[in-house]
Nucleic acid binder design. Structure first.
Lengths: 339, 339
DNA sequence: CCAACGCAGGAAAACGCTTTCCTGAGGCTA
DNA sequence: TAGCCTCAGGAAAGCGTTTTCCTGCGTTGG
């Protein structure tokens, strides 16, 4: 691997001069030397060692992102927004997949700190796990204390700026849509109960039920993995326990797609026999049949805003940016009365 | 930011000893000192500077991956495989999105080289662009010359090991399925013509046509972006140009989903009036209605194998691992004769 | 004609760590 | 008791950059 010293030697200049030319310092250098150095760079195919640079200039440029899984479309969308803003600012982003493992999440905070990132964005849902939250808090605090910036999507209990999707409100919208149009027995296909996303969305559904004088008994809530197969599985469990459901809310669109598969498999017409509402409005929602009613969250924008917060290092109290949820009516749900 | 020196001072030992304890050297150290150092680490919330470590031990540990876009499900799947293997080997992976911009791809090779990655995996399709390919080749050669490893998915003309999906064969399978069951006018919804993936798959389709004594005239091939909206757009163009098509092949599943949307919009029954075959067998293929016939490529496995190749640094000639394509028959296609 | 100044370029310190090499103390054998 | 070996721990030399500070030359102005 060619080093700066090699380049300097070949060009017959000092490393100092070579460095100045290569990394564009403001200091003036003759065109003559400049040309010699650039030629040497070209001939040696020299690329500066980023780690040495980082060590020498005390300037951190990369940013870190911790998500549950980039290949999950939900996070893919968010990540797209994060990337957009980061690249616009000339920042490299390091993406870490925690695969919903709190321990791994903790490790990644260390790793990003070790990488000297300028900011860390936590894009995954929070956990209901006091010990873990405390540990995470302390690690993040240590990081911010040394000048690192933190921003999170959701989970307000952490230090740093936050982008707060209206999960509760979104759950409420979905619930209200069903309960106010005659549905009484509504099942919920829910993600893991340890995730705050799950509980927040559920809380909204409960509020909607309450307002319509209904309830959401435990047997009408099935928890499973936050993906397609989890949705299929939970829906099967739900239908077995309460065959008389007239509507199902899935707590994200992936699960809703799984629900659709199970319903189709059992020959249950959607929305004829059972109405279905998803959550997130991922692009697949338009493409399944029937098209999925869902609660839209502007995922890409959420990512972009979280990164903007992380990169904007003005002091001051932690900022919280709310993000609105809006109900999208499509073909998979209908009033019960219309039967 | 606490440094190793701070820890050493607090523990009353030399930096050498502290380093040995913290990064687990084989050298023996008394339990007494060990305890003091670990306590200091804990109190100071010390995390070693990864860049300084990298500079000191001349040992590269991260690996780089260049894809078109992680949030595209095709690459998300591949990336999942890449990550799995990398994490199993204790490697950090740096993901770079080129967004199908050759210039950016070139830049990222430099960047990864600067980051001293142990290997670079190129997971995006190749381009038909001689100047670019030459530039890329030379940059990669400079990298391998200094001990870096390169592996690519597809595009065999680059140096290094390769995982070669059977794109041509897959195109052939899709084409044969249609041409041998009575379809004569088959349209193609294709990705950008500069991508080798597009041309390889098309070549397979052409071969199938030829074998059945048919052709694939230019007017029955519509090129567009390799995503859902591109598929919708290309399908519209195709139908306008040739209203008498009885089948369409989309060169990936995202485009197929877009095609489905356009067909539905125009009230054209699938597969009643037009048969549709996609490519890749992404999970969405099962979930649209009708379920999509498609050519399956084991994407996650391809990623895993590419990373394995990249990480296995035995010398020798470049290895090429072929990956088979298999036709999956679902509801979106049927023989023409059955009408 | 000399002092002062401007400016191009180099020497060397610093960044935070690892690791080789060295030191000195203790324990063993003869 | 002398000599040697073992072993814990420290000093210091890197790793590849950047950057501060310094040098020495050529200009300029008085």
């Amino acid at each position: 691997m060619a080093t700066l010293a090699d380049v300097a030697r070949r060009a017959g200049v000092s490393p100092a001069t070579a460095s100045r030319i290569i990394s564009g310092s403001t200091k003036l250098v003759t065109d003559e030397l400049r040309a010699r150095v650039l030629r040497a760079v070209d001939e040696l195919q020299y690329v500066p060692n980023a780690h040495a640079q980082l060590l020498a200039r005390a300037q951190r440029t990369a940013v870190g992102v911790i998500v549950h899984d980039v290949s999950d479309p939900y996070f893919a969308e968010i990540t797209r927004g994060l990337q957009q803003v980061a690249t616009a600012h000339g920042r490299l982003v390091i993406i870490c997949n925690s695969y919903r493992d709190p321990a791994r999440e903790l490790e990644y905070v260390e790793l990003l700190r070790a990488q000297q990132v300028a900011a860390i964005v936590l894009a995954g849902s929070g956990y209901h796990d006091a010990a873990f939250t405390k540990a995470l808090k302390s690690k993040l605090a240590a990081y911010t204390r040394t000048g690192g910036r933190v921003s999170v999507i959701g989970r307000h209990e952490l230090p740093g700026d936050a982008v707060m999707p209206a999960n509760e409100e979104g759950g409420y919208l979905a619930g209200a849509e069903l309960f106010t149009t005659g549905h009484r027995k509504v099942g919920v296909v829910a993600g893991p109960r340890v995730l705050t996303t799950t509980t927040d969305r559920l809380a909204g559904l409960r509020r909607a039920a309450r307002e319509s004088g209904r309830t959401l008994p435990a047997k009408r809530i099935a928890y499973a993995g936050f993906d397609r197969d989890g949705g299929a599985e939970a829906t099967a469990a739900l239908l077995d326990a309460s065959p008389d459901l007239t509507a199902i809310v899935a707590l994200n669109d992936s699960m809703a797609v799984g629900a659709l598969a199970t319903l189709r498999e059992r020959g249950i017409d959607v929305p004829g026999q059972v109405s279905l509402i998803g959550f997130d409005d991922m692009s697949i929602a338009r493409d399944v049949t029937p098209a999925l009613s869902t609660v839209r969250l502007p995922l890409t924008e959420m990512g972009a805003r979280a990164m903007s917060l992380a990169l904007d290092n003005t002091d001051g109290p932690a900022r919280v940016e709310p993000v609105e949820a809006v109900l999208i009516r499509r073909a998979s749900s209908q009033p019960l009365t219309s039967r």
